[in-house]
Computed example of a mutant assay.
Amino acid sequence: MSHGQHVKPNGSGIGRIIKATKCSFDGLVSAWRDEAAFRQEMLMAVIGTALACWLAQSINQWLLLVIPLMALLVVEIFNSAIEAAIDRIGAEIHPLSKKAKDLGSSAVFITLLIIALCWGSVLYQNYLVG
């Protein structure tokens, strides 16, 4: 191995893909088990996806309804990761710890606003100006 190259902990090739998939699954299990907000948002995503099948009048509308729900799950996982990292650093109250957690929470809030805008626009288009 030449200078500057590092061995990746999960290897390379198909073995890396398998290990990365396992890590991803472990993260989803952890989010489901340990994060009430993730469970609530997953329920919202499942119900929302089913409703989108009924409400959407085109594939574009369906995507406009479903993609933000999936994005919410992604943002919630990032928020939980930030919280876990901050909690690992220490339990003491610190302004930067609060800032990091508040920023993560803000990202979730903005994603919820995006969902409201997308759903509101589809409902408006289909049922108010139809």
Rank of each mutant, 00 (worst) to 15 (best):
H6W: 05
A45H: 06
D102A: 13
E92V: 05
Q125V: 02
Q40D: 08
V66S: 07
A56N: 09
W62V: 02
A45D: 05
I115T: 00
I86T: 03
K8A: 13
H6S: 10
I86G: 01
L112Q: 13
G4C: 03
I82W: 00
T111K: 10
N60Y: 09
A116D: 05
I14K: 09
C118M: 15
G15E: 14
S12P: 00
G15S: 13
Q125C: 04
A91P: 00
A37Y: 04
G90R: 02
L72W: 03
L123V: 15
K22M: 12
E76S: 10
S58M: 13
S2K: 15
S30F: 03
Q57C: 08
K19C: 06
I59E: 09
K19G: 07
L55T: 09
M1C: 01
R33V: 03
S106R: 07
F38M: 09
A45P: 05
G13L: 10
L117A: 13
E35V: 07
V75D: 02
I14F: 09
H94D: 11
I93E: 14
M44F: 14
R39D: 04
A85V: 03
V129S: 03
M1G: 13
A31C: 12
L64A: 12
F25K: 11
S30Y: 05
H6P: 00
N79S: 09
P9C: 07
M42I: 06
H94R: 13
A71S: 09
V74I: 05
S80W: 11
W119T: 01
L96T: 13
L96C: 08
V108P: 01
R33T: 05
L63T: 04
K19V: 13
G104W: 05
E83I: 06
D26G: 00
G90V: 05
S97M: 08
L51C: 14
L63V: 05
A81H: 02
T49G: 11
I89P: 01
A36I: 09
M44S: 14
V7W: 03
K22P: 00
S121Q: 07
F109A: 15
Q125S: 14
I82R: 02
L112C: 10
C53I: 11
T111N: 15
W32G: 01
A45F: 12
L43F: 10
